[in-house]
Nucleic acid binder design. Structure first.
Lengths: 158, 158
DNA sequence: AATGCAAATGAGACTTATTATCATTATCGT
DNA sequence: ACGATAATGATAATAAGTCTCATTTGCATT
């Protein structure tokens, strides 16, 4: 049980909203009630959400506005998009709001769960990726590591 | 310069076709000339391709057939799909045909380049991922690790 | 080498997820 | 409170990929 990492914990609600507000205003965007509710929806659910997930949690949000706002928030570094190959994309809060983590992706039902690596492993990985990037004259921004397989729920059913 | 890994090299053409043929027939599929040309296109290009890339390389292939065949080949474990979030998905030969590797994804132009980790790092990562999966009662199939950033080409232009 | 039959093909219709449009409404600095 | 401007939401439009179905091909068996 217990945390497998010593990474900092996720931000609390007020701190989170303050952070998002800063990010948005610095790019001349407004932190409207709709955007607040969107951020709340992403924050309260522990896992990445699809558009249908979001409008189910917050039915007063218009789908077109949610898509537009996810894009704005993504550009401001508040939201991260996770491409799932087929079906809806998943969205979650970005790194400053959610500590660095990776994903368990169920190939059966598509659900995505967040997991964290031990800091030691993460560090080895980071250093090696930097080396590889420099060898290819590639300027790295961030990495993503997903484990694909059968989630506990689907594994029992199949 | 030299290989940063001791992994086995990619298969040669005849061996590759034999392998694909076996995989397809064992699932009652035929290895038609169209499928052969598709596999050749993926093999000759050193990097993952989109549908437009493929039909440009092999203009005699019908887009609908290519999509259908990519799906069949994916299910047979011959092709791997790389979801890119926006725009076209990328496709490459799967692991038995192309040795285990990861991707440098350019956030500017979308091009994807294959890279290999040192075996030592890959092993540390694999072991840790197995541990994490078992803690979540998750049955892992494979992992994907992508480094996102600016490729050498785009970095100069921006 | 011909036969038969199931699988594959290809052109285009269709679906689905997402993005653009635009008149109306809300937000924020003054 | 005011005014400029950004955001909203219903709907139209687009883009990527999937489905349909009449025709063709591949392959196992004569």
């Amino acid at each position: 049980m217990g945390q497998p990492t010593t990474s900092p914990p996720d931000k609390q609600s007020s701190e989170r909203h303050a952070f998002v507000h800063t990010r948005l205003s610095s790019d001349n965007h407004r932190y409207t009630t709709g955007r607040r509710r969107l951020v709340d929806a992403l924050a309260c659910s522990g896992q990445p959400l699809t558009l249908p997930d979001i409008v189910e949690i917050a039915p007063d949000l218009a789908a077109s506005s949610v898509y537009r706002n996810l894009e704005v928030l993504e550009q401001c570094g508040v939201v991260k998009r996770i491409a799932s190959g087929s079906g809806h994309a998943h969205f979650e809060l970005a790194e400053p709001l959610l500590s660095h983590h990776h994903h368990l992706v169920c190939v059966d039902c598509g659900v995505i769960e967040d997991v964290r690596l031990d800091d030691e492993v993460e560090e080895v990985l980071d250093q090696h990726l930097s080396l590889i990037a420099s060898r290819a004259s590639f300027k790295p921004l961030h990495h993503s590591l997903d484990l694909h397989g059968h989630c506990a729920n689907c594994d029992g059913l199949l």
